[in-house]
């Protein structure tokens, strides 16, 4: 019969820790709603940077949107850009400091709406930056209005009867769009709602960071996320809704991988 240690004996020895919050996230409470994928996305990026020991060599660019305060949570050098202009700011930073790791962290209202021009041209120029794109199909921060990425027939504050594609247009699959541009090197779409998906997303983020060292072009990782406040659901319901509705339209997986 083996000896079974008590709870106190296990948790008092720090060598027994198999998982703890990365030190690259500050102690500030995240400003996101309960269950929001932004928190997991922040944590994964910071975990990878910690594991690669890049804290001193990383410059992040925060967007406008729910994640506008990302610089408050990520304990690295950060710059906050004007709405949609994060890829342009990151371009300037990377050209001034080519040896730094530069990334942008943007939502769909920032990257796929007001910042479409900056995004497409940064991708087309093949800037050696990494773009993390969190897509929840809605303008979460301003109260759940329709975004370019809103699904057909999806109800939002400004499309209360569902998005009618005849009058409101079709959703923009910007990740597929940039994958066709010659300037992108690695394009992937992931999600962070289950442990398996979190592990896959972390691998994609690792690749996107490693590939930047090769100077072969822009790396683009989309994270399909929930917006339970904007979708008017509980976190668990919104994850189920995301699996049933978002994933058929935004299929997960690597879209462009280096040959």
């Amino acid at each position: 019969m083996s000896y079974i240690p008590t709870r106190e004996e296990i948790i008092e020895d720090h060598d027994n820790v198999v998982y703890e919050r990365t030190c690259l996230l500050t102690d500030n409470a995240l400003s996101y709603c309960p269950g929001c994928g932004h928190g997991t996305a922040h944590r994964l990026i910071m975990e990878v940077i910690e594991e690669m020991n890049l804290q001193a060599d990383t410059i992040g660019v925060a967007p406008v949107g729910c994640s506008v305060l990302a610089y408050d949570f990520m304990n690295i050098d950060m710059q906050q850009a004007a709405h949609g202009r994060a890829p342009a700011v990151a371009t300037g930073i990377k050209r001034l400091y080519p040896n730094k790791f530069v990334f942008t962290y943007q939502g769909d209202g920032d990257l796929a709406a007001i910042g479409t021009g900056e995004t497409l041209h940064a991708c087309n120029r093949g800037e050696n930056i990494t773009v993390f794109f969190v897509n929840n199909g809605i303008y979460g921060m301003t109260g759940g209005q329709m975004a370019p990425t809103t699904l057909p027939n999806m109800k939002t504050a400004t499309s209360p009867f569902g998005r009618d594609t005849e009058t409101m247009g079709h959703p923009l699959k910007i990740t597929e769009l940039v994958s066709h541009l010659p300037g992108t090197y690695f394009v992937s779409r992931q999600s962070v709602h289950t442990p398996a998906n979190v592990r896959k997303a972390k691998k994609a983020i690792e690749k996107a960071i490693q590939y930047q060292k090769l100077n072969k072009g822009l790396c683009f990782v989309e994270i399909v996320s929930n917006c339970n406040s904007g979708w008017k659901m509980t976190p668990l319901e919104s994850n189920k809704w995301m699996e049933e509705n978002m994933f058929p339209f935004y299929p997960l997986g690597d879209i462009k991988v280096p040959k």
Partner: peptide
């Protein structure tokens, strides 16, 4: 560690020991 890696707020620390 499943609970800790899906936690958006990083609120969970996980410990593990091998039983001898």
């Amino acid at each position: 560690t499943n609970c800790a890696i899906v936690c958006p707020d990083g609120a969970i620390t996980v410990y593990r020991v091998k039983l001898k």
